[in-house]
């Protein structure tokens, strides 16, 4: 479904993504892990259209979407959430989600119905008429998720969804996510620098360090590789094991 080929993104002389290639099958859950500064967010932003790749191809269902502006990428069927939350502060929760739903319809009533349905499934109905700024982080995270899902994506990219959540809230959001994945036939691509979350949900993971892909495979296999441990914990820890 998504195929990234030899993607390079450089900021001036600094290479944030160097020659990244990977594939993502329909219905799969792919995790992207790596320490801070590994280039995960840059990769995300390249796919979602926020950065223009320096070189390489991003094929989504056969179309090369590299360099497309973000709104066209979304309309093509790739939705995303943001690492630092970007909720519209002056619009109610329901309106936030409605704006997502407007991606696929021009009718307000249709968008509203869709938004209410998603909010209901998320357990957010009670907050519908409230402004998002006063709500707890766990609720705001779910609003972002709801908003992205409302654009009816085929591929959903989640940037650090679990950051700032406690274990209980993390579990809850994983359950919600899995339900949506089943019901709406979503393909998921997620990054996280906290391992636990990503290891439990992903079927396959990619590990990045210093702008390069260093490993790929099933979560439990990858976690055992020396170079992965090294990237996370430093060289000495990997060798002393």
């Amino acid at each position: 479904m998504l195929e990234v080929k030899n993607l390079v993104k450089a900021f001036g002389g600094l290479v944030a993504n160097g020659d990244i290639s990977f594939e993502l099958q329909e219905g799969e859950v792919l995790g992207l892990i790596g320490p801070n500064g590994a280039g995960k967010s840059t990769l995300f932003n390249c796919i979602a259209g926020y950065y223009k790749p320096t070189a390489g191809k991003i094929l989504f269902e056969g179309k090369d979407i590299a360099g497309w502006p973000p709104h066209l990428v979304t309309r093509e069927g790739i939705a995303r959430t943001f690492q630092g939350m970007k909720i519209m502060p002056n619009l109610t929760v329901e309106e936030n989600v409605m704006i997502g739903a407007f991606c696929r319809t021009n009718e307000r009533q249709v968008a509203k119905k869709e938004a209410r349905e998603i909010l209901n499934l998320m357990g957010l109905t009670e907050f519908g008429k409230e402004l998002p700024s006063g709500l707890p982080i766990s609720v705001q995270k779910r609003i972002e998720l709801a908003r992205a899902i409302a654009t009816k994506p085929k591929l959903l990219m989640l940037d650090e969804l679990a950051a700032g959540l406690n274990p209980l809230e993390t579990k809850e959001i994983i359950r919600t996510l899995q339900r949506f994945k089943e019901e709406r036939k979503l393909t998921l691509f997620l990054t996280e620098h906290v391992m636990e979350f990503i290891m439990t949900i992903s079927e396959r993971v990619i590990v990045m360090a210093a702008g390069k892909k260093i490993a790929e495979g099933r979560p439990e296999e990858v976690a055992r590789q020396d170079k992965v441990v090294e990237a996370y914990l430093g060289e000495r820890y990997a060798k002393g094991r």
Partner: peptide, 20 residues
């Protein structure tokens, strides 16, 4: 709604399919 979304957060608006 698109206008208000752009006012509140341009990046988020773009991520929801709005041509800012």
């Amino acid at each position: 709604y698109a206008v208000q979304a752009v006012r509140d957060n341009e990046e988020a608006a773009a991520s929801l399919g709005i041509n800012v």
